[in-house]
Structures are given as C-alpha cells and as structure tokens.
C-alpha cells in the first residue's frame, strides 16, 4: 500500500487527528475474548483485566455457596491466584476465560466445603461427608442466575437499561417505552434480542451439560 502525502488543502490535520484519537482509544477497550487471549499469552495486565471483568462473578458464586463473606473472599483470592499460576492449562480456543474461571471456582468451593466438614469430625455423619467430596456444591440454577446477572451487566445501553426495567423492576413493555421515551416496537425488539443474547452467553459459559 502506498501512502501519498498531499499538500494541506482541505483540513487534513483535523481528519488525521480524528483517526489518531479513535485508534489510541479503542486500544484501551478489551472484550472478554481479548482478555481471554491476553491471559493465555500471560500478558502482565491481563490478570487485572480478568479480575475487573470476572471478580464479581467469582465472588458472588462463592458467597452464594458458602454463605460467608470471609470464606468467599478467600476462595476468590485462591481462584485468581491459581488461575494465573495455572494459565498454561487454559486454552482460549476451547472456551472463554469466564467459563474456565467458573470451573475453578466450583472446585475451590468444593475444597472449602470438604475442609469445613473435616473440621466437624466429632460427628460421624460429618466424617462420612468429609470423605465423600461433594460433586455439586452449587446447584445449576444458582449458577445460571448469577451468570445471567453478570452477563446482563455487560450488555450495552439502551438494551441493558431496558432489560433491567423489564426483568428486575417488572415494568411492562409500554411502561418502559414511556419511561425511556422510546417506541414500543424498539423496546420489544431489545427485550427479545436481549433474551436470546443471554441464552447464547449462558450456553457458552456453561458449555454442554456433560462438563458440569
């Protein structure tokens, strides 16, 4: 490709400045896929990006399972530390980092539950429980709900606002249209598309049922 420099005839400086501005700014906007790739490559800032993107998800899953903030914080720390140290085991081609972190979270929660039951060895029933590592400590319904809340936050406006009004605040479609000053058809379309998007993202993160 050849670039020819022309004499400044029609405000070329302004156009040039716009291009530079857009380029430099878009470089600062990692998507989930970009974070996953950078993480697999071990790029230094990718752990911070992964933490920013998924720490609420990991922490909320741990909190729901363990019912205790201190334990949930410990598990969250373990998940990100072990994920970073074991990043060589993460294959971005087989799924996104969010799914992988969710899997690690489930294992760390199971470990914590096992440790808890060991601490209760004075009871025979608890001892039996300790030997038997729990296979599912978080039910799939809870995981799905937390994942949906997490994915919903990632959706761009106006769709996110519309979905939150519809799902969280039980507004009718006409009420949302009035509140946001949008055509009713637009509101309905966003809700349909949003529902399909959430379904797609959920499938991507949870994978097929056999991996659960």
């Amino acid at each position: 490709m050849t670039v020819t420099l022309l004499p400044a005839a029609h405000e070329p400086c302004q156009a040039f400045a716009t291009v530079i501005a857009v380029t430099s700014m878009e470089a600062d906007a990692p998507s989930s896929a970009e974070i996953s790739k950078a993480f697999a490559e071990g790029r230094a800032d990718s752990l911070a990006q992964a933490y920013q993107r998924w720490s609420n998800l990991v922490f909320t899953l741990a909190l729901r399972a363990l019912g205790n903030r201190a334990d949930a914080e410990d598990v969250t720390q373990q998940v990100f530390v072990s994920a970073w140290r074991g990043r060589a085991n993460f294959d971005p081609d087989s799924g996104q980092l969010g799914a992988w972190l969710t899997g690690i979270t489930r294992h760390r929660i199971a470990d914590r539950m096992t440790a808890r039951s060991r601490e209760l060895r004075n009871s025979e029933a608890a001892a039996r429980l300790a030997e038997q590592r729990p296979t599912t400590v978080l039910d799939d319904l809870t995981i799905d709900r937390v994942l949906i809340a997490d994915e919903l936050e990632q959706i761009d406006d106006p769709r996110r606002t519309i979905l939150k009004l519809a799902f969280y605040e039980d507004r009718t479609h006409p009420q949302i249209a009035e509140q946001l000053d949008l055509p009713l058809g637009t509101v309905k379309s966003h809700i349909r598309r949003g529902l399909l998007h959430l379904r797609d993202r959920l499938k991507e993160v949870t994978g097929d049922e056999t991996s659960r």
């Binding site: 609420n56 949930a72 914080e73 709900r145 949906i148 979905l163 969280y168 039980d170």
Partner: peptide, 12 residues
C-alpha cells in the same frame, strides 16, 4: 431466572 432478580456482590 432473569426475573428471579439475581444480584451480584462485589469483593472488597
């Protein structure tokens, strides 16, 4: 599930 108003918590 979305209508069950799932909530996210944040670590400190």
């Amino acid at each position: 599930n979305a209508r069950s108003k799932p909530r996210l918590d944040s670590p400190p």
